[in-house]
Design a protein around this nucleic acid. Sequence first.
DNA 1: TCTTGTTGGTTACAAATACAACCATTACCC
DNA 2: GGGTAATGGTTGTATTTGTAACCAACAAGA
Lengths: 158, 158
Amino acid sequence: MSEFDLRTFLPYLLNQAAEETSLGFSRVYKDRYGMLRTEWRVLFHLGRYGDMTAAEIGRRAKMHKTKISRAVAALEAKRFVTRREDSADRRRETLTLSAQGRRAFDDLVVVAEAHDTRLTANLSAGERAVLIDCLQRLAGFGKGVEPAIDGYKQDEYQ
Amino acid sequence: MSEFDLRTFLPYLLNQAAEETSLGFSRVYKDRYGMLRTEWRVLFHLGRYGDMTAAEIGRRAKMHKTKISRAVAALEAKRFVTRREDSADRRRETLTLSAQGRRAFDDLVVVAEAHDTRLTANLSAGERAVLIDCLQRLAGFGKGVEPAIDGYKQDEYQ
DNA sequence: TCTTGTTGGTTACAAATACAACCATTACCC
DNA sequence: GGGTAATGGTTGTATTTGTAACCAACAAGA
């Protein structure tokens, strides 16, 4: 029988840790605002990094454009987001948080920060630094926006 | 504007890292054997930890029993897994890999090991050790099987 | 033994996701 | 300018997943 152990296999371990750590937070945005994961991601991008188009969110968050399209539609229905057509390029629509959307964002940021603090409470400062650094490298952050690989278009994740 | 940054928020970062690192491997089990993530997880549990029932896999892998039920049905249809009814308790069925299932497992283990090696190639031994340790703690590993929390039954994950 | 509860497992239906196709607009280039 | 490709975004349909309900078998206590 092989030495191979699932408990040190990164894709498995990362998925388990991701699910476990996401649970508490997802319960909040779900119960409090009826949001899905895709929706809070879009909300957070707009709230934290400012107005941008759906395509730009897609590149930053590595979400497929259909997910974004539906998340934006849902956020719009909740009156959290508004669209403004770009007059220079009529394909593009810039997305903005409404006042209500910003209130939800501000509220959820507090929850997220508290949740994150709780999650890292058992880690030393050094451990946390290494963890974040490794995860960012594994996630491909800090490479700007990924170069296209294997014939994938940048835009066409998932 | 808040200081909060998605790029250090663990639930987000872990999800991104998990997706990114899972991609290469999932392509293999999908293309080569038409498996889903749930299916390779079941296959790996049986291949690595020996015969067990669906419920036991569920406890170990924190997968909901419906996911397991369907994954097992799919693996059975592919002739990778067989069931054997427990004569002492006729509710339980012990699952076993067929010879064909074991070949698939052996093949995928090699792929998984190579993939994991590639993923950690840029990490120092120390970084890797810290990473694995932190992830196992975040994932709740090593606590045996989780105590019930908040009125969740052990069995009823997700 | 009855009856109430738990466990192992499947099924049905709703919600969410992936994937491909599509439309409109803009960019490139002959 | 006109054809071809690329980009931004939406929609339709097939797969997957989540959730609840269900059935059968066992457990425990009155």
